[in-house]
C-alpha cells in the first residue's frame, strides 16, 4: 500500500510539473488569432446572430452540435438500459417533506419559463439550448424530488425528445436543399440583427435542442429515481 501511495504522489507531481510548464510558457495574447478574427468579423453578416458563441455552436460548427446531442441521447438510452432490470418493486411511502412539496409547486413553473426564455433568446443573450435545457431538467428533477413515486410520464419525455431530434435533422436537411449546406441557418430570412425573430433558423434549432436536452436530462434523472425506488 505504501508503494502504491508513493506511486500516486509521483504521478500527480509529474502531472503538476507538466502543467507548470504549460503555465510558464503561456503568454497572454494581444490580438485574436485567425479563426477567432474570422468568426468575430463575419458573424453579423453571414449568420445574423448577436451571440457569436451561438453562431459557432449552431451554424459554423453545427455538425459537432448534432454529434453532441447524439452523445447525450446515447447516454440517456444507455442509462435507461443499464438501470432497466432494477429488481423487485418495493412498496415505498411517499415521505417527502411538506416544505419541499410547497416550494416545488412555487418554483417549477418559474423554472420552466426561465428555461424556455433562455433557449429562445440563445442567439441574442448569453445562454442557449443546452443551458435552457439544463434549467428545465432542474425543474423536472425538483418535480421528481417532491413526488418520487410517479407523476413524471417517461413516455411523454421520450416522444418530445424524439420529435425534436427528428425535426432538428429535418431542418439540417432543409439547409442542404434551400441554402448553402447541412444545418445552414439561411433557410429563413436573417432579419434585423438583435431582434427575437432574426438569425434565420437559429432560434428554431436552439429551441429544439433545448427541448431535447431538457427531456434527456429529465429521463436520466427519472431512470435513476425509478431504480432508487426498487430493491435488488
Amino acid at each position: 500500500m505504501k508503494i502504491k501511495n508513493s506511486l500516486v504522489i509521483l504521478l500527480v507531481m509529474a502531472f503538476g510539473v507538466f502543467l507548470f510548464q504549460v503555465y510558464k510558457q503561456h503568454q497572454t495574447q494581444g490580438s485574436l488569432n485567425k479563426t477567432a478574427a474570422y468568426y468575430n468579423t463575419n458573424t453579423p453578416d453571414e449568420v445574423g446572430a448577436s451571440n457569436v458563441v451561438t453562431a459557432i455552436v449552431v451554424t459554423y460548427r453545427g455538425l459537432d452540435t448534432l454529434g453532441e446531442v447524439t452523445v447525450l441521447f446515447l447516454t440517456a438510452m444507455i442509462v435507461g438500459y443499464i438501470l432497466r432490470h432494477g429488481g423487485k418493486e418495493k412498496p415505498m411511502k411517499n415521505n417527502t417533506s411538506e416544505i419541499l412539496i410547497t416550494a416545488a409547486n412555487v418554483l417549477i413553473p418559474g423554472s420552466i419559463i426561465l428555461g424556455v426564455y433562455v433557449f429562445i433568446n440563445g442567439h441574442l443573450t448569453p445562454g442557449g439550448g443546452f443551458q435552457g435545457g439544463a434549467i428545465i431538467g432542474t425543474a423536472i428533477t425538483l418535480m421528481i424530488l417532491a413526488d418520487p413515486l410517479g407523476s413524471v410520464k417517461k413516455a411523454v419525455l421520450h416522444i418530445t425528445e424524439s420529435l425534436s431530434g427528428f425535426t432538428y435533422i429535418l431542418i439540417g436537411l432543409a439547409g442542404l436543399l434551400f441554402a448553402g449546406g447541412f444545418l445552414d441557418n439561411r433557410i429563413l430570412p436573417l432579419g434585423n440583427l438583435g431582434n427575437l425573430l432574426s438569425a434565420g433558423a437559429i432560434p428554431l434549432i436552439y429551441s429544439l435542442i433545448g427541448l431535447k436536452v431538457g427531456t434527456e436530462l429529465s429521463s436520466i434523472i427519472a431512470s435513476i429515481n425509478e431504480t432508487g425506488n426498487k430493491t435488488a
Binding site: Q29, A36, V52, V53, I56, G128
Partner: peptide, 11 residues
C-alpha cells in the same frame, strides 16, 4: 474575446 474556446467548453 476569442469565442472558439467558449463554444468548445460548451460542448
Amino acid at each position: 474575446i476569442d469565442p472558439v474556446p467558449q463554444a468548445l467548453v460548451l460542448t
